[in-house]
Amino acid sequence: MTSLFQNLLIWHILLGLGGTAFFIAALVVMLRDKLRLKALKTHTLLGAMGIIGSWIAGGYYYTNYYGKAVKPLIKASDYPWAHKVIMETKEHIFLFLPILGLTAVLTVWLSGDLLEKEPKLRKATALLILTIALLGVAIALMGVGVSGAVGQGV
């Protein structure tokens, strides 16, 4: 693997993990009694930036390197289904995340104090943030699964 693809893989993992962590932090803010709006705005913005960064780094790695060099290894491993089931699911679920992340940022930044006054809006926004966090965690676990299959195939 060239150093470019190594770096892209590393940034894909770190930014994705960071983005998910910021959305989990945003969820913790939402769950508290008193809403700290400034913290919520910062967490969602950094979370969305992390996810988009991870998307770009992972997307470049996936479209230029994975198919040629990694997919054959997975297919040669004890878990050839890992490509079709885990990787294909991961890459396509990943398409949701930047859109959901940007929607969360817009909702939090534009509704502002409405989130404090309207419990229904707060609950619905918290649900969206929870979904982003859960999908982020699921994608991270699928990443571990795919990497494991690569190890078996080497």
Binding site: I93, L100, K120, L121, A124, T131
Partner: peptide
Amino acid sequence: TGRTSFWLKILTATAILGSLAI
């Protein structure tokens, strides 16, 4: 706000069901 909350829930449900469908 009621309508915005409704659409947020629809978006969340769509993303979850879409992920499960994939």
